[in-house]
Amino acid sequence: MYIMKRLGLILLLLTLAACGGAASGGDPADVVERYLTAKVAGDGDALRPLLCSPMEALFSREVNSFSTVEGARLENMDCTRQGDTDVVTCTGEIVATYGTETNRFPLSSYRVVQEDGEWKWCGESG
């Protein structure tokens, strides 16, 4: 019984921690990784909620960006938020083929913003 109570308490704490994370918008690096994954896959349903308001107008560009190349995939993606800034820097690359040619798109740094408590991808970091 005691063990069950402890387990319940731990589960409750974990749930609260998860809720706390969501309330602060989650991990911006994770948002960028999910954005890149959705963009490469051309997954509009997954991509749309990750775009900040100014980028919503570019949804078509974003979702179609890799539709002309075959087998686009992410390799060695690793994204990290730069301290407390609004910049997430990623290493790795997108690899795609077109006929017999291989295109490589190195990942770079991206800007993230919080909208309604949620982190959103908001373009390249200039």
């Binding site: 560009r61 179609n64 960006s65 002309t68 190349v69 795609a96 006929g99 798109f105």
Partner: peptide
Amino acid sequence: AQIGMATYTVFDPMW
């Protein structure tokens, strides 16, 4: 001018 480019990627910084 790139392989696989289209009107919607010519403005995409990722390209």
